[in-house]
Design a protein around this nucleic acid. Structure first.
Lengths: 353, 353
DNA sequence: CTGAAAGCGCTTACAG
DNA sequence: CTGAAAGCGCTTACAG
């Protein structure tokens, strides 16, 4: 049986401090001091202990350490989504990467979990695991936050907000981004814009649309009109589908541009247009939001509004670390400025169909 | 100071079994039995304890449990890559998602870490954390494996292989996939194919090319010729760059198809072609390998060879769980069959430039 | 500078 | 069916 030969010697490999103490001829206390570097130890003791540690490849148990220090040096990331993908999600995956990249040098290990709507399962799991802190990604229901809040575990929300006051959160200034999008399109001369808006229960989609609307309305009628179509999800497929549903309407009106409240939506719509021989940006300009990787890979590349996911993840870690170490944190709401990224999909001025 | 009001009551929230015992008027042992459901307990005891547990929202410490059971119910994922992205990597991210989706219902929490070439830092970290098992993703150096092997912690390799014998690994049958690609292209009538091959030190790129070559050579000269260009990395940028470098050569030869040993490479090349007004697939057919999400989103959508990342991740979890529980595992090398996915980029027969 | 002892929060035989 | 005790692998005052 393969299993035997592979793991037959398991258990042998795991040493403990007592063994190290015996082998190096000192007490457990001394071994502990040598390894942690805390407290006084003689050069002689250090030499003996380190030699044994080296030889036996002894790795002190972080579990036991966590037990006494009441610190696990683990943090948990909770991503709220109804379904996978999570890690490979074009947007959340980026935030995740930024968190992983920042947490590691800070000596935190990170648990990645997803939570389905309304469920507290993963959250409770993390609580039982005694993580030092939690990073909550995306929208979440109030009850989840209140639940977590009860346990006194520090936590930070990323890319989501809540009505619960005082919760530290890091978000993109989506409203500004929406305004940027409107300014860009109308600046290019587009006067009739077709807007595909993701679920308005979602903070970001709501605010992006808000910003877009605000800018357009502020410009007055002569600067442009726009029609909004609401989508039930923010996926590529839904963007494609809704574009298909409104195809007759679309072609019978003088639209020259499309704005999707995220890139996936915009790409879905663009796919449909290209399949129906509508030139992008020749006949219709298309722009999205998020600036996911696919945006620059595509032909034509997609104009978008970049969200600084790298900074979101980094700040989340840094602030969480402060909370964990009981350092003061000045701000409770961090808002990052998005950035317009102009690419081919809006390059030339659109012409009516 | 915000920090105070937020975390001032920390510590209060974390109860322990002793408190629960006192409040419910039974011993710690009884509380333990009630909560774990192991051993005999009277209905009366159960009622009292559960009531207190409920009221105080008591969550038993997984750390303490791990201490006594010598099982953390945590597994670690080590992704070997020189740089980010990791989670958001179009291919590894999928494997990661599949692992997360499978691990959670099995009651494992998962640590996600990356390891840079040659370093043992993350691996040692996971070892100290006393994970129950490890999943190693991508190629890794022999020394890392030997190092991990010393500790008797069960582990499984995914999408990579090693010379170390007996290591359980789950891989795609890349050679077969390469043959499929060759068969598909030559079956469409392509007689002159330009191959962009990723780093040959990488198992998958090597085998994909091997398979492609094997099929083509087996067909004899009259069935087609191909030229191979080796890339230094397997990225979109490198695919684009190498296509640009060989542009003069390419256009002066009657190539009608391009095969990239992964999708990113193929997409990079395709981007260049489209920027230079080469119609895909009208003039040149393009195909890749992996079937990442972008492949189906693009216009034209990309023909590819699908790797069953979902199954890879799932099997990795299931087998690791068996190893952890000392159950026998039959196979030491799992090879998954890839699947040709035909899309628009090879739809019609290519014409020479 | 070093070691014995207590304790972190649980579980698990063992008596009763 | 229940409780006292020992122990998981460490760290941390406290004596010496």
């Amino acid at each position: 049986m393969w299993e035997r030969s592979h793991n037959g010697e398991r258990g042998k490999a795991v040493r403990n401090i007592k063994e190290i103490a015996q082998l190096s001829g000192v007490s457990k206390s001394t071994v502990s001091r040598v390894i942690s570097g805390r407290g006084y130890t003689s050069q002689e003791a250090r030499d003996k202990v380190l030699k044994v540690v080296q030889e036996l490849q002894y790795k002190p148990s972080a579990v036991a350490r966590a037990m006494v220090s009441q610190r696990t040096h683990n943090i948990g990331i909770l991503i709220y989504r109804r379904e996978y993908p999570v890690a490979s999600h074009p947007f959340y995956g980026k935030i995740l990467d930024a968190i992983l990249a920042t947490a590691s040098p800070m000596n935190y290990s990170v648990f990645v979990t997803t939570e389905y709507e309304m469920s507290l399962r993963s959250a409770d799991f993390m609580l039982e695991k005694r993580v030092d802190g939690l990073i909550l990604i995306s929208r979440l229901e109030q009850n989840v936050i209140e639940h977590i809040g009860k346990f006194g575990v520090p936590y930070i929300m990323v890319n989501g907000s809540t009505d619960v006051p005082g919760v530290i959160h890091i978000v993109n200034r989506d409203q500004n981004g929406g305004m940027e999008a409107a300014r860009h399109l109308s600046g290019l001369g587009h006067r009739r814009i077709f807007v595909l808006a993701g679920p308005q229960s979602h903070r970001s989609h709501h605010l992006r649309l808000e910003g877009f609307r605000t800018y357009m309305n502020g410009q007055g009628y002569e600067f442009g009109e726009f029609d909004i179509t609401y989508l039930e999800s923010s996926t590529f497929e839904e963007g494609y589908r809704k574009m298909a549903d409104h195809w007759e309407h679309f072609r019978s009106h003088p639209y020259t541009a499309i704005f999707g409240t995220n890139d996936m939506i915009a790409l879905g719509a663009m796919k449909f247009l290209m399949e129906h021989s509508v030139a992008v940006p020749g006949q219709v300009a298309v722009m999205g939001f998020d600036d996911i990787d696919a945006a620059s890979i595509l032909t034509p590349s997609l104009t978008s509004v970049r969200v600084d996911t790298e900074r979101m993840g980094r700040l989340a870690c840094e602030m969480l670390d402060k909370l964990i170490r009981h350092e003061p944190v000045e701000e409770t709401a961090i808002e990052l400025e998005p950035q317009l990224v102009i690419r081919d999909s809006t390059k030339r001025r659109g012409e009516a169909l």
